[in-house]
């Protein structure tokens, strides 16, 4: 597309203005995290000096490191769990012909219409009965099965030519080895998308960890932030913002690295 200089400048202007607007709160929090109490009260935007005092404070006030580790363990577990459970289901939907396939697929899709919050009360009781309060399995297992993930992978598996399956049958490859050696490697991009999505949403999960963790043993960073905020609110905003920055860095990095991939993968899963 050829574009005139005037419209180019105009578009750049809009891009810069609006993206600065969108990113401003994050930048602001970042600046605050280096400021001392008086500086914050004066309402400055740039800190006078870069001091990491707030960061050392936040790590000493809160077992933030162990929260980070918990969040990491929980997010990676959910990510891997979703990849395994969803890819197995998607494989069955694409490469097997069986009675009731459409019905079961419909059941899967119907779970997308059941808001998770509408079922949380019995789920909390279930976790209590299993004695899974304050455990990793309590935080992760309910999220392993994901209709959206199954759907996304199924869409990708459907693009694999059936001749590949047939050629593998002639070569004598078992069903599972075809799944493992051919289907999964070919679908790497979709698996990465789903993995990133799973990690991101789990890392950011709020309500479920709030319900399931009653002590610090497996508490995640998001609940840590709530804790921090309610403890520190009146006084030390710099410390709170340092906590915020620590918590969002992993996911922001992940997003920056995988933005392109995520955008392609998600819109594909959503539409085709």
């Amino acid at each position: 597309m050829k574009m005139g200089l005037a419209s180019k400048i105009w578009i750049y202007f809009l891009l810069i203005a609006t993206s600065a607007f969108v990113f401003f709160p994050v930048l602001y929090a970042f600046m605050i995290s280096f400021m001392t109490g008086p500086e914050i009260i004066q309402g400055k935007f740039f800190p006078e000096s870069i001091s990491f005092e707030n960061y050392s404070k936040v790590f000493s006030r809160l077992p933030l490191l162990s929260y980070l580790l918990n969040s990491f363990i929980v997010s990676v577990s959910v990510m891997l769990g979703q990849l395994v459970v969803c890819s197995l289901a998607a494989y069955a939907f694409v490469f097997f012909k069986f009675k009731g396939r459409d019905f079961i697929f419909f059941l899967f899709i119907s779970t997308m219409m059941i808001p998770w919050e509408a079922t949380m009360i019995p789920n909390v009781f279930t976790i209590r009965k299993l004695d899974w309060f304050n455990t990793y399995q309590g935080l992760t297992l309910p999220f392993f099965a994901l209709a959206f993930g199954t759907f996304l992978l199924r869409q990708h598996f459907l693009t694999i030519p059936k001749e590949l399956h047939e050629a593998s049958q002639i070569a004598g490859l078992s069903r599972f080895r075809f799944f493992w050696r051919v289907v999964l490697p070919i679908s790497k991009t979709s698996l990465v998308t789903l993995g990133a999505y799973g990690f991101l949403t789990t890392w950011n999960m709020y309500l479920w960890p709030l319900l399931i963790t009653t002590n610090q043993s497996v508490r995640t960073v998001q609940i840590g932030l709530k804790q921090l905020q309610s403890q520190e609110i009146a006084t030390e905003w710099g410390v709170v913002m340092a906590g915020v920055i620590v918590v969002i860095i992993p996911t922001l990095l992940l997003l920056f690295l995988g933005q392109k991939q995520l955008q392609k993968g998600l819109s594909q899963g959503a539409l085709k």
Binding site: T18, I233, L252
Partner: peptide
């Protein structure tokens, strides 16, 4: 346009920020 990737990342950045973290930032604002 040149550098469009940077802007895309900026616009999508809020997806990487948890509800809890965003809420704390806005609480301050």
């Amino acid at each position: 346009l040149k550098g469009i990737g940077f802007f895309r990342t900026m616009y999508s950045s809020t997806m990487g920020i948890s509800v809890a973290a965003s809420s704390v930032i806005w609480l301050f604002m």
